[in-house]
Design a protein around this nucleic acid. Structure first.
Length: 415
RNA sequence: CGGGGAGUCGUAUAGUGGUAGUACGCGUGCUUUGGGAGCACGUAGUCCGAGUUCGAUUCUCGGCUCCCCGACCA
């Protein structure tokens, strides 16, 4: 893709409303555009990154046997009154009347919908377990959106719901999902860890959140540096100093909640009539779990923990492109060679952005650093005379001259 | 939802009760091209409404919007 034609306009100045690093860099790099408070467009560059994250999640979700579907964002009031949550969510849910006087809400979460769908299709213990997920825009009328993509009124989330005949089966799946989540975060290039937390409006039980350490976060997490025990401060108010597991010293960290897994029990299935007949012919409510990942929030978190003064440093699996070719100078041979290199890399299946613009070298380097594509390949009169390509990893400071073949290998190596 | 701050070209900012300036961007031309290059010309702005005033971008009031802190949440 030629950068001269690409729909992205980087900025040297930071928009004054952006305070947190991820917000600043995503705005300056033209990954996102703000429409209103807490409401953003994912521009072509941003959407590429988001799709990388989503695809990782899809692979891992499919890998544990769950199936993707897509539910509506528009929900009739009647289904929410069955669980009593129409009133519970007042204030947080966008609720309104349509022109014929029927009430609707924009979905902040989908337990009511998925449980109703499942209730109509699960009859026997033989139909269980089942796990269904979607990746979809959620709406929450946040009192205070903040920090760009970190907390919005409209955001994209992967929500998975599981259905089980027994608590043992649920427990097993809960751990399976936890492991999948940890793989997802690792592949996205963020170090997330599970912590004990509260269930909020979903359940009274202790739940498990996945936290990423960053000063831009809104949660405080207590972590035992000795054994790794961790809990959200909200559920650990009375044990400040000593770890309940090993007695070690506990430290506080500011974190962002990137995921959350819940044991829902049978509350929803009882209210919505989701039951099954067990081996003995007894009718029982289905045991449920729900598991969320904020994909746009993860995107911002990736930037929060992968950047330097010059810009973003994308982990290879979520980078918008794998290679950023820069041609320096206006020499026609340099441009031809750079174009040939782009064609060559593309034939190898490598995603490449080619900065063909007639800008000074400094400006191109600055833009490349800002955009944060993992591997930079420079073509100039200098490299041309040696028949080589200069490559530099975004995370490194040293550049080196290599052959095309070496460049292919470097581009295909995940790091 | 409580508290604080801010709205000036696309972006970042200056300034004034009397013709609104600078930088970047953008356009044209020329010169440049290994770390946001130079010259010239050009382009574009006072959030909305009311009030005070001969005159308001500036002062007053109301509204709207955005940001930050707090209470709540992927």
């Amino acid at each position: 893709m030629k950068q001269s034609l690409y729909f992205a306009k980087t900025r040297k100045e930071t928009p004054k409303d952006a305070q947190e690093i991820s917000h600043k860099l995503l705005m300056r790099g033209d990954y996102i555009d703000q429409l209103a408070s807490g409401i953003y467009t994912l521009l072509p560059l941003g959407l590429r990154v988001h799709q990388k994250i989503v695809n990782i999640i899809r692979e891992e979700m499919n890998g544990i046997g769950s199936q993707e579907l897509l539910m509506p964002a528009l929900h009739p009031k009647s289904i929410w009154t069955k669980t009593g949550r129409w009133n519970v969510y007042k204030g947080e849910m966008y609720q309104f009347e349509d022109k014929s006087g029927h009430w609707f809400g924009l979905g902040p979460t989908h337990e009511e919908i998925i449980t109703t769908i499942v209730a109509n299709r699960i009859n026997s213990f033989r139909d269980l377990p089942q796990a269904l997920y979607q990746i979809q825009t959620k709406f929450r009328d946040e009192a205070r959106p903040k920090a760009g993509l970190l907390r919005g009124k409209e955001f994209i989330m992967k929500d998975l719901y599981s259905f089980h005949a027994t608590k043992e089966d649920f427990d097993k799946f809960y751990e399976t999902v936890t492991e999948a989540y940890l793989r997802i975060f690792k592949r996205c290039g963020v170090d997330a860890f599970p912590v004990q937390a509260s269930g909020g409006a979903f359940t009274k039980e202790i739940t498990r959140e996945f936290m990423i350490k960053t000063g831009a976060g809104e949660d405080t997490t207590l972590i035992c540096d000795h054994c790794g025990w961790a809990a959200n401060k909200e559920v650990a108010e009375n044990l400040r100093k000593k770890c309940p597991k090993c007695g070690g010293e506990i430290k506080q960290y500011t974190t962002v909640e990137a995921g959350h897994v819940f044991h829902l029990g049978t509350g929803f299935s009882e209210k919505l009539g989701a039951s099954f007949i067990d081996e003995n012919g007894d009718k029982k409510p289905i045991i449920m779990g729900c598991y969320g990942l904020g994909t746009t929030r993860i995107m911002a978190s990736v930037v929060e923990v992968n950047n330097d003064k010059k810009g973003i440093i994308w982990p290879s699996e979520v980078a918008p492109f794998s290679v950023h070719i820069l041609s320096l100078g206006s020499d026609i041979k340099v441009k031809q060679e750079a174009q040939a290199l782009e064609d060559y890399l593309q034939k190898e299946g490598i995603e490449v952005l080619y900065d063909d613009r007639d800008l000074s070298a400094g400006e191109k380097f600055a833009d490349a650093d800002l955009l944060g594509i993992p591997l930079r390949a420079v073509i100039s009169e200098k490299t041309l005379s040696q028949g080589m390509v200069e490559i530099k990893y975004r995370k490194d400071t040293e550049a080196r001259l290599v052959t095309r073949g070496d460049l292919i290998n470097a581009a295909k190596t995940k790091n």
